[in-house]
Design a protein around this nucleic acid. Structure first.
Length: 430
DNA sequence: TCTGGGGTCCTAGGACCC
DNA sequence: TCTGGGGTCCTAGGACCC
């Protein structure tokens, strides 16, 4: 029988912060999104206070002050590195792993001898000891059931399986139905707010109802995707583990500004910076882009000013991975959609129509930044090597600017403990 | 004063072709 | 004067995920 495990970090970002600041253990704590915008991770103590996910920080502030909630700005350098460590430890437990997100891994435990609960506990212990992050383990006979098992593990929904490891494959069909009948349909992976509401209207309110619904009816009423979810709930593997991450089909980079931006020159700087980040990712996956989309907007939350949002796709003469060619195209697009006098709060770019660089035909004129242009490829290679070695932004084009009036807010950020020599934790001797 | 960022997949509908 | 049926490709928008 198939056995898929989903391992995920508890309150991952909060746990990362606590590894290096252990005095935060047991204290109510949140991590904020970029720009200190809203809450993206909550400690158990904060969840217990009823603080919802995604609440804007300025709305939570009074309660935070009152209850001494600690807030940290997000520190993706730290979380990314901790994530890498966690996934590597988890990989030791099975030959087949899919890294699903920054804090989640699927493992294929099919055919593993012995009790899977015990096995799950050993995963928990090793990750905790070697990386410092607490995790829960859910096991089921499909990815969707593994996700649900993980939910059960976190909330101890199956009482005979306490301690953060739940194996649904050990339950009989009747026991599984009984367990799923205590889980709201909206908790099922792939059932979001909209679908949940529609399903409830049809009388399908629990995960058990959905499992026992007619696939045909569901598929006809919704889509093949939801139909697959029903099959997966019945233990049929419709979604395979993807051990090698497929290359991205589009690469995005966007940010909210720390304060409203009015000037075109500042927007061009910001967009040039985003293009630098995105094109770096593009080169890492050895692809080129044939088009770039630029967009900007004012705040959708202000009621006293009209909302403006616009975007444009700029096609390139020739597919490229060069930050220079891409930034030039982005600037050109930006000029088309920019309206003077508006308080812009966000801008971004998206690289589109990606393809492997070795599949691009030779260009007769070898325009600036073409992947076949050896000199420009050497320049980009140097750029990437230097930035990897000495830190992001060591080498960059002047177009990214220096004053950066658009830079995002990040007022409670912890240090890059694991990736910067100067930020290593210091152990005091008593 | 202050509301994140980065993705995927599917479907419907229009343009266009024979 | 009558005005079919089948197919592909593209885009926009909606839904979902973390």
């Amino acid at each position: 029988m198939t056995a898929i495990a989903l391992i995920d970090g508890n309150n991952f970002y909060v746990s990362c912060e606590r590894v290096f600041q252990p005095h935060f253990e047991g204290k109510p704590m949140v991590v904020l999104s970029n720009n200190d915008g809203c809450v993206v991770a909550r400690s158990a103590e904060v969840k217990a206070m009823g603080v919802p996910m995604g609440i804007p920080w300025f709305k939570l502030k009074p309660l935070a002050r009152q209850n001494r909630i600690i807030a940290k700005s997000s520190n993706y350098t730290l979380y990314g590195d901790m994530s890498h460590r966690m996934h590597s430890v988890i990989a030791q437990f099975a030959p087949e792993q899919e890294i699903y997100s920054i804090d989640e891994s699927f493992l294929n435990l099919t055919g593993m001898p012995g009790d899977l609960i015990t096995y799950g506990q050993s995963i928990q212990q090793r990750v905790k000891q070697w990386v410092g992050i607490p995790v829960c383990v859910g096991i089921g006979s499909s990815k969707t059931l593994a996700k649900l098992a993980n939910h059960c593990a976190k909330k101890t929904i199956v009482p005979i399986m306490p301690g953060g490891v739940t194996d649904l494959t050990q339950l009989s069909n009747a026991e599984l139905d009984e367990t799923l009948s205590r889980i709201a349909v909206g908790e099922v992976w792939g059932i979001g707010r909209r679908l949940s509401a529609q399903l409830i209207d049809m009388g399908i309110t629990t995960a058990a109802h959905l499992k026992n619904a007619s696939i045909n009816r569901i598929q006809k009423h919704f889509s093949v995707v939801v139909g697959r979810t029903v099959a997966e709930l019945n233990g049929e593997m419709c979604l395979e583990l993807e051990d090698v991450a497929p290359p991205k089909q589009q690469i995005m980079s966007s940010r909210s500004f720390g304060q409203p931006v009015y000037r075109l020159e500042d927007l061009i700087e910001a967009v040039t910076s985003y293009t630098a980040r995105a094109s770096e990712k593009l080169r890492r996956q050895q692809h080129v882009a044939s088009a770039i989309q630029v967009y900007l907007r004012t705040s959708p939350f202000k009621t006293d000013a009209p909302f403006y949002s616009n975007g444009v796709v700029v096609r390139l003469m020739q597919p490229t991975n060069s930050v220079f060619a891409l930034a030039q195209a982005a600037t050109q697009g930006l000029k088309q959609i920019y309206k003077p006098g508006l308080p812009y709060t966000k801008a971004g770019i998206m690289l589109l129509d990606l393809q492997p660089s070795n599949r691009v035909p030779l260009d007769l004129f070898s325009a600036l930044g073409a992947p076949t242009d050896l000199r420009s490829q050497a320049l980009l290679k140097t750029l990437d090597t230097m930035n990897e070695r000495f830190g992001r932004g060591t080498l960059r084009s002047a177009g990214e600017g220096f004053a950066k009036p658009w830079a995002m807010r990040s007022t409670h950020k912890s240090r890059a403990y694991t990736t910067d020599w100067a930020a290593l934790a210091v152990v005091q001797r008593g």
